[in-house]
């Protein structure tokens, strides 16, 4: 599907509403992602970033508006969920590897069982991807033997191996220490260079600046500002964005 600028649209969210009981988690939210575009979602905790990813991935019903993936309406679908989810790769904050399967099996299980691809072919793909993230020696390790950063890289490979149209990252470095954060973010930067379409939720502002084509700031379930990284960090329009960015800097205390 092409838009008015002749660019291919992967994800189109229009006037989305999501309520938990009577409270809005997402309120009249519209967002468009083009092919090869990287959008970073920022905002304080509880502003609806993660909920938005869960809605896109059909883990939540929505109460209004719609979500389109490659031109097809997917929100509130009750059938063929699997077909849609195969096009969406999701990486969670706490990795969510399957603890009873080794690294390779974690990666190849879904391509084999869900996409019905040939095992040899999938294994070959998986090994190429593992090498790319620097884990070629860990194919037969169990998740419990890996560090947090390694687990998260495996989770990224697991999502990639399904060849999704879009990748969703939900605060994937929030439970990692700085060194591990770096190794995971470098993988995501590399994916951006490869031209993957990605929607990234993060609290790492430096990383956001480096990876994003556009930064979207959310507050109370709505988009407050959506702009290129330079403008977002150098000259934000809204007071809320200024206040948010201020939380990342500290004034030196003098005696």
């Amino acid at each position: 599907m092409l838009d008015e600028n002749k660019k291919e649209v992967i994800l189109e969210i229009s006037h989305l509403h999501k309520k938990y009981d009577e409270n809005f988690a997402i309120k009249d939210l519209s967002l468009k992602l083009h092919k090869r575009e990287v959008v970073v979602l920022v905002g304080s905790s509880g502003c609806g970033k993660s909920t938005l990813l869960r809605c896109i991935n059909l883990l939540e019903d929505v109460q209004g508006g719609e979500i389109k993936l490659c031109g097809e309406t997917i929100s509130n679908r009750k059938s063929n969920l699997s077909e849609i989810r195969q096009k969406i790769g999701m990486v969670f904050q706490n990795y969510e590897l399957f603890p009873h399967k080794n690294v390779l099996d974690n990666i190849i299980l879904a391509p084999i069982k869900v996409q019905k691809r040939k095992k040899e072919e999938v294994i070959e793909d998986a090994k190429v991807l593992l090498k790319r993230v620097g884990l070629e020696g860990k194919a037969y390790s169990m998740p419990s033997q890996l560090s947090g950063g390694q687990k998260q890289r495996v989770a990224i490979v697991r999502a990639l191996c399904m060849n999704p149209e879009i990748l969703l990252f939900d605060e994937v470095t929030a439970s990692l220490d700085p060194e591990m954060t770096r190794e995971v973010l470098e993988v995501i930067l590399e994916l951006a260079d490869m031209g993957k379409t990605m929607l990234v939720v993060t609290h790492e502002m430096q990383f956001a600046r480096a990876v994003a084509d556009r930064i979207v700031f959310m507050d109370e379930g709505s988009i407050i500002e959506a702009t290129i990284p330079e403008d977002f960090f150098e000259s934000p329009n809204s007071e809320k964005v200024k206040a948010f960015l201020d939380t990342f800097t500290y004034k030196q205390k003098r005696k």
């Binding site: 989810r85 999701m90 879904a110």
Partner: peptide
């Protein structure tokens, strides 16, 4: 979230129970 992680990869409800939940629950 293990269940959700399996759903995200496209596993059906039945596949999720068979391949992901039961093997872990029995252990």
């Amino acid at each position: 979230i293990q269940k959700e992680s399996a759903y995200s990869l496209g596993f059906s409800k039945l596949q999720t129970i068979i391949y992901i939940i039961l093997p872990q629950a029995i252990r």
